[in-house]
């Protein structure tokens, strides 16, 4: 699970700059003819366009309910303040969009409710292009995310068969956003040797625009050798096996050769975003126009 984030650790090794500059040049040069080198995989294998009103498609989405206590990580490992539910007031599909709403209310001992959708056991895929079009809320304490977790493998520890745990399973954060920085999002890889505060991450900043006033497309293109992170057709971070090795002095392990599943959630408060203030507006929603996966 997403654990012990630390913002000051968001960083990019200088040698990646060249790659990114390269990517930017490609994008720029392609602006006119609409063929985007940003994405190369265009065979749609899954899409949820959220066209049917009501609860999200149960063939695609399940829910993590609670405050993480049942999973052994109260506050979901980050001292988060919300209790996740599957109630329609926290998650619903309406007018062609998925709406995940965070509310300020006393519920099961917590001060906020929200929702966390997961495609675990329903949709899992290794490699490909994962993309969603999303509008996020604003204000201190909001921490919406579109991210992937690896499917745990069964391993043997002390002659007992157990499931792998985070960070051995790997985590790819396609989009994370903090409500008090409405022009920034960040993309991150976590794995053994580079998890939590030591994760490998980079920020993308919108110029003259914000993420809470309109929809933006967030995606990764993930191959056996690298993960490209993009926003609205701009690659802002490319991480390769070699990057992970160099970032971690060879300690980090590339664990991104297994199926991953999708998570969409809105967390409130905790270590990374800080807690809401009296000026934070509740309720607010993360609105998802679509989720699409290509290979």
């Amino acid at each position: 699970m997403k654990t012990i984030h630390s913002k000051n650790k968001l960083r990019l090794a200088p040698y990646n700059l060249a790659l990114i500059l390269g990517a930017i040049l490609i994008v720029t040069s392609c602006d006119l003819d609409e063929t985007q080198e940003v994405t190369t995989l265009n065979n749609l294998v899954m899409s949820d366009e959220f066209d049917v009103d009501g609860a999200p498609d149960s063939n695609m989405w399940g829910y993590d309910v609670g405050d993480g206590t049942n999973e052994g990580i109260p506050g979901w490992g980050n001292n988060e303040l919300q209790y996740y539910t599957d109630r329609p007031e926290n998650v619903t599909v309406e007018n062609g969009v998925l709406i995940i709403t965070a509310k300020e209310e006393s519920f099961e001992g917590k001060g906020y409710t929200s929702a966390r959708l997961t495609s675990q056991d329903l949709f899992e895929q290794q490699y490909g292009r994962f993309e969603a079009r999303i509008r996020v809320p604003f204000g201190k304490g909001y921490w919406p995310a579109f991210w992937l977790l690896g499917v745990p493998k069964t391993i043997t520890v002390d002659h007992e068969e157990v499931l792998e745990e985070w960070p051995a399973i790997g985590e790819i954060d396609i989009m994370e956003y903090l409500g008090d920085e409405p022009t920034n999002v960040f993309g991150t890889l976590h794995g053994p040797g580079f998890s939590g505060a030591e994760s490998i991450s980079k920020e993308f900043t919108l110029e003259n625009d914000r993420f809470d006033t309109g929809f933006h497309v967030f995606g990764i293109e993930w191959s056996p050798t690298s993960v490209n992170f993009y926003v609205d057709g701009n690659i802002y971070q490319t991480l390769t096996r070699e990057d992970v090795a160099e970032e971690t002095d060879g300690e980090g392990e590339w664990v991104f050769d297994r199926p991953f599943y999708i998570i969409l959630n809105v967390a409130i408060g905790g270590n990374l975003p800080g807690n809401p203030t009296e000026n934070t507006v509740f309720p607010q929603s993360m609105i998802v126009d679509y989720v699409r996966v290509y290979n």
């Binding site: 604003f138 003259n208 625009d209 914000r210 809470d212 507006v281």
Partner: peptide, 10 residues
């Protein structure tokens, strides 16, 4: 200035 980042009027 036209900042483009002035939003959420209340």
């Amino acid at each position: 200035e036209k900042l483009g980042t002035i939003a959420q009027p209340r």
